[in-house]
Nucleic acid binder design. Sequence first.
DNA 1: GCCGTTTTCGGCCCGACTGTTTTCAGTCG
Length: 569
Amino acid sequence: MKNRELADIFDKMADILEFKGENPFKISAYRKAARVLKDLTEDIEKLSQQGKLKDLPGVGSGIAKKIEEYLQTSRMSKYDEVKEEVSDELIELLRIPDLGPKTLALLHKETGIKNMAELEEALQSEQVRALPGMGAKKAENILRGIRLIKEGKGRIPLGTALPLVEEVVELMKKKGIVREIFPAGSLRRCRETIGDIDLLATGKDGTKIIEEFTHLPLVTEVLAAGKTKGSVITHGGFQVDLRVVPKVSFGAALQYFTGSKAHNIRLREIAKSRGLKINEYGVFRQEERIGGRREEEVYQILGLPWMPPELREDRGEIEAAMQASLPSLIELADIKGDMHVHSNWSDGSASLEELAEGAKRLGYQYLLITDHSAAIKIAGGLSPEELLRQIEEIRGLNQELEGITLLAGTEVDILPDGSLDYPDELLEKLDVVVAAVHSGFKQDLRTMTKRILGAIENPRVDIIAHPTGRIIGEREPYAVDLSEIFSRAAATGTALEINAYYGRLDLSDTNCREAKRRGVKLVISSDAHQLHQLHWMRLGVAVARRGWLEKGDVLNTLPLKELLNSLKG
DNA sequence: GCCGTTTTCGGCCCGACTGTTTTCAGTCG
């Protein structure tokens, strides 16, 4: 499928034309085509053969021609032409928050900067202050953006790493030469971002296993290939390591490579105090191996129960294990419905019917439809009239649907003054009200906190979505006094969301653990904008597990009736 | 570059916020 390649080219074209100050509508036409191609499930080549390219929304004669040219010749002359005088490095700088095409073009023209290092240097010089529209604050903001990008670099979002690893595991299993193969490391612990991707396997022929591994189709570069360890770079530039370990050590190795480092140090200390030794090869008394085939043994020998990897951060799990008070963590199968989903009434791509069917396939009992409110025009926010129509449509659909109930809701904007974007009379007609901040991220701590408390104190608001607004590696949480949010949320019975979108995961693991401690009820929601994104729920559950949450802490583990009784509104 | 019951030209979602200005440009969603 060339869908993705074409989408990337159109996105890149849009970037370049933006930098060049081209017609903004032409630019958004390219962006739209790119998005449509990314979402497209059919093969673009097939559509092209059938002469159906122009049936796609956002694809007219110009873009259809370019697609055909690329499919036939693997080139796109227009793309080759526009990228002539700009380097990839320069265009990449547009990913820096607070640095847009206009400012980049200005800086490039006036100071000659061509890459991030030169940009950073220029921003620290007096010279840029003299440029029109540039001041100290602006330079400072861009420099902060650069720092954010640099910090995020090298770490892969969990939501990107998981599918990649699952693909590798599937491919290796199909080869029939590995006995066991499991991910380890921070991925197994479900950290929100992953450094290296580590896999462990057992099998007869280590050399053969590594050879098959380094020749997988998604491998672009082989860094190392021996008889116990292979290391490759995959499409997308991710490093994946595979270690082949003896069967008798598999459990110990899995435990060792899963970490975290801090957790392992604690285990080794306990072992040592009992005259034992733990390493990646097993558990030993003197020279005698007394365990290590299975991971459970490592813990058992220390008198501890096996612990879910999500807990292994040395955040109190070892003490809890000693007191036999480890939490019984929530599981994906506990989730009875999704509480934050966008349909094609606003900026989602699936219809209400498709979403209902998708939710039903996941075994859900209910699905809360939460399209944007009017203030977010860009995302097709619903006017009060449209929302009324949607409510009616949902009520009608529920007459026809079997085995799933659609709930009428909204993701209503919390406006900068703390008021909501819909009147109370309208909110009262909904089954569930989700409220969220989407603008004015730079308000100071007191203003922002008061703003969100405004929504929490509103008796009609059931849930606050993505409470801190952070985007991993891109945007810091806004300044908000979470402690105060937690106490008022607990006092009013307002639930807080764990947003499962891989770039948000908001509340974070530690925040939701604290929320639980403070008596706040939580919900886990996918924030899906496309049908397949309903699967993101698993990432939210992973965060909840890292936050020590149990089934009883999460409202959407309840059957429909109890859920509605437990929500504030 | 797309689109069309306002249909082959001319409009295309636009408001809030920030930082720069002294009425506005750039960025974001």
